[in-house]
Design a protein around this nucleic acid. Structure first.
Length: 116
DNA sequence: ATTCTGACAGCAA
DNA sequence: TTTGCTGCCAGAA
């Protein structure tokens, strides 16, 4: 049961990466869900900030599977081209329309429930 | 140490 | 329904 806020072997960033990398193929989650799972509560913004730095990590972070609570691809501008994120999602069988995941509820993957 | 900003979320108009 | 402001946490200058 992860509850350690600070003073952990893993930084907040690493924790975010760890959870994000565990998102199953063809599934998505939200910043708030990750923040909630990490115990950050309402620090969803920080999660996004961490993913922003994910480009600096040697590991591949499926950040395209992380969207806001509305299922909007708010971070698509950080993938170089605004179409990259959508392409990646559609490649995984996720329908994206108007920068929004259509069947977001079906594809939603909650670390709180799935990962415990 | 202080201030600003951010790939969010929630609520008020 | 859409727009805007506020709260939240962590990092960079």
């Amino acid at each position: 049961m992860p509850r350690q806020k600070s003073k952990n072997n893993e930084d907040f960033f690493s924790s975010v990466y760890n959870v994000t990398m565990q998102i199953p193929y063809g599934r998505v989650t939200s910043y708030g869900a990750i923040a909630s799972y990490l115990g950050a509560g309402s620090s969803a913004r920080t999660v996004g900030w961490a993913l922003n730095a994910s480009h600096n990590t040697p590991e591949f972070i499926p950040a395209h599977r992380v969207v806001n609570r509305n299922g909007l691809l708010t971070g698509k501008f950080h993938f170089g081209n605004t179409t990259t994120m959508q392409q990646l999602l559609e490649n995984e069988g996720i329908i994206v329309e108007n920068d929004r995941i259509v069947n977001f509820v079906e594809k939603f993957w909650d670390p709180l429930s799935e990962l415990s």
